[in-house]
Amino acid sequence: MPKVNLRISGGDASVHYDVTGSGPGLLLIHGTGATREQWAPLVEAVRDRFTVVAPDYSGSGLTTDHGGALTVEDLAAEMLAAASDAGLDRFHVVGHSLGAAVAAHLAGTRPEKVASLVLHAGWVRTDARMDAEFRLWLEVLDAAPGLFARMLPLMAFGTRYWSAADAASNEAVVAALAANLAPGVARQTEVDRTVDLRAVLPAITAPTLVLASAQDRLIPPAQQRELLARIPRTRYAEVEAGHGAHAEHPEAFWDLVTAFLDGQPSAVPQAAPTR
């Protein structure tokens, strides 16, 4: 598995990533507590026409670092380093949740690198209500990590999930979430608390899809409206699901993402990776 070493604000990081397929570049940025594996269905759907780079940022997967505090800027630097190491010069970017904040920061600070942008469940600035939720996450993670996994379906899923769930199936989901939760989820949640993209969003030049979850109880609709207002070239779509729409309603979610990507003029074509 490829990796790239770089210096971030707290010290050194070694970022591991997958690179798959051939064609124009596509960088995928996962959310809090997840890993690059979040994107497996999208990778399979587009590997025939994109060179897909899916990294783990600090706190997730095989990526290692100094173990201290992180910033949005750190995670954006890691993502750019992975894309560059994989041979991508200009590329499309898809980000979910914290990954959407990282993607927007990258697109606003290095606009020459980003050909198009998909922001799912993103936000402009962490407000008081969101910060209260993130503080609760941190307290639960500190006191009883297993309870955090039990909270996740309540936070992440909407009526589509709950109308089909029973106690046994939900228990199975909780167990899977507990087993796969990234070890650095608390560090990443601290980054969630610091998000403030107001200064960088107007500098985004890439055509952008603001993709909302209609039943998202974490990210309020006002945040989506503000993304639309602050980013110059946007369009809007939504999925009838909760914050974790990619897991709750995958068919609709992946269809919207792939349709947007396929509708964009290609980034600078990339050679097939040699690794």
Rank of each mutant, 00 (worst) to 15 (best):
P2T: 11
P2V: 13
V4L: 02
I8S: 05
G10D: 03
G11I: 13
S14C: 07
S14K: 03
S14G: 06
H16G: 00
Y17E: 01
Y17A: 06
Y17M: 01
G21M: 09
S22H: 14
P24N: 03
G25T: 10
G25I: 07
L28G: 01
H30D: 03
G31N: 06
E37G: 06
A40E: 11
A40G: 05
P41M: 00
A45S: 15
V52S: 03
A54V: 07
S58Q: 09
L62C: 11
T63G: 01
T63M: 07
D65R: 01
D65Q: 01
D65V: 01
H66D: 04
G67E: 11
T71Y: 05
E73Q: 14
E78S: 03
E78K: 02
A81G: 03
A83D: 04
A86L: 05
G87R: 07
G87K: 06
H92Q: 07
H92F: 03
H96N: 14
S97C: 08
A101T: 06
A101I: 00
V102H: 09
V102R: 01
A104W: 09
H105L: 05
R110D: 11
E112F: 02
E112V: 00
E112T: 04
K113F: 06
K113M: 13
V114T: 11
V114I: 14
G122S: 06
T126M: 11
E133F: 14
F134H: 00
L138E: 12
V140A: 07
D142G: 15
D142Y: 05
A143N: 15
A143D: 15
A144T: 14
P145N: 07
G146E: 15
F148C: 10
A156R: 10
Y161L: 04
A164D: 08
N170E: 15
E171W: 08
V174M: 10
L177V: 12
L177N: 09
A179I: 04
Q188M: 11
T189I: 01
V191E: 02
R193S: 00
V195P: 00
V195F: 11
P202M: 11
T205C: 09
A206R: 01
P207R: 06
V210K: 12
L211Q: 02
D216S: 08
D216E: 11
P220G: 00
P221Q: 08
Q223R: 10
Q224V: 14
R225D: 15
E226P: 03
L227D: 03
A229Q: 13
I231P: 05
P232V: 10
P232A: 12
R233W: 02
T234E: 09
R235W: 11
A237K: 09
G242T: 02
H243W: 02
A245I: 11
H246L: 14
E248L: 04
H249F: 13
H249P: 00
P250T: 12
D255T: 15
D255W: 12
V257Y: 04
V257M: 01
A259I: 12
L261A: 07
S266M: 13
P269V: 01
Q270T: 15
A271V: 14
P273G: 06
P273F: 03
T274D: 12
T274R: 13
T274Q: 13
R275W: 15
